[in-house]
């Protein structure tokens, strides 16, 4: 049983490494080849755990090989668009100019129920409001509503605001996150100065976020109302 436990740990670490090696694409929605790899890896990883007669290398080798093939393949699809179309297919326009393309629906084996269900998944309950819809290569659905049925934007009503990046988490659980601070073009000393300005020590901070405009949000570990500082010098 101890052997099974150690093997489980080894295979667990290996699968984590394999998923990390495949990169963030894997953690989002899956392409067909990525789905195949995920299923295969999960099945192969159980073999050496269940049967101690099977050497661990017999599980490690196919997992690593499959992951490496997948990474190299994704590199090739990046460089060669034709190869990408061969492996992943191409997105299909299913609604164009408000008209449902039945030929594409037949090609995709998409029933009317599938179409309406996919619409509901995008919070569209009235098909007449859809201008354009695409079925992506990973099977997901992208919808663009007609202008008159879409939410108005600030620019539509003549309001123009400055764009800015979202706030960054710069302190978590009393520790500074240096890459985020560098991203804002600030320094750890500046962050400490802001905190000392409100009489809070770094160790007392649970969450601190800041944006490029100097707006800071600080929540303490002891609880209580958070501090919101505008125009901090970071």
């Amino acid at each position: 049983m101890f052997v099974v436990l150690i093997r489980s740990l080894i295979l667990y670490i290996l699968v984590i490494f394999a998923v990390r090696l495949m990169g963030k694409r894997q953690l989002g929605e899956l392409q067909p080849s990525e789905l195949v790899i995920t299923i295969l890896i999960s099945n192969i990883a159980t073999l050496p755990i269940e049967d101690v007669n099977i050497p661990v290398i017999v599980g490690v080798t196919p997992i690593l090989a499959l992951v490496c093939f997948e990474v190299l393949m994704s590199g090739l699809t990046l460089k060669f668009p034709k190869f990408r179309r061969l492996v992943s297919g191409s997105p299909k326009i299913i609604i164009h100019n408000g008209i449902v393309d039945q030929k594409v629906m037949n090609e995709l084996r998409f029933s009317v129920d599938d179409l309406v269900s996919a619409m509901r998944g995008k919070d569209v309950f009235d098909i007449s409001k859809v201008q354009f819809a695409i079925v992506e290569t990973n099977g997901s659905f992208s919808v663009m509503k007609k202008r008159e049925d879409d939410m108005p934007k600030l620019s539509d009503i003549g309001i123009y605001v400055q764009n800015s990046d979202p706030p960054q988490l710069i302190v978590a659980d009393g520790k500074m996150i240096t890459p985020a601070i560098d991203f804002l073009g600030s320094s750890t000393e500046a962050v400490r100065k802001v905190l000392s300005g409100i009489g809070v020590k770094l160790e007392q901070v649970m969450i601190m976020t800041a944006d490029s405009g100097g707006k800071c949000y600080i929540a303490r570990k002891s609880g209580g109302s958070p501090y919101i500082i505008e125009g901090a010098k970071l």
Partner: peptide, 9 residues
């Protein structure tokens, strides 16, 4: 990642 994958293979 591609270099690592190549080396592992």
């Amino acid at each position: 990642r591609m270099i690592m994958s190549g080396c592992i293979l």
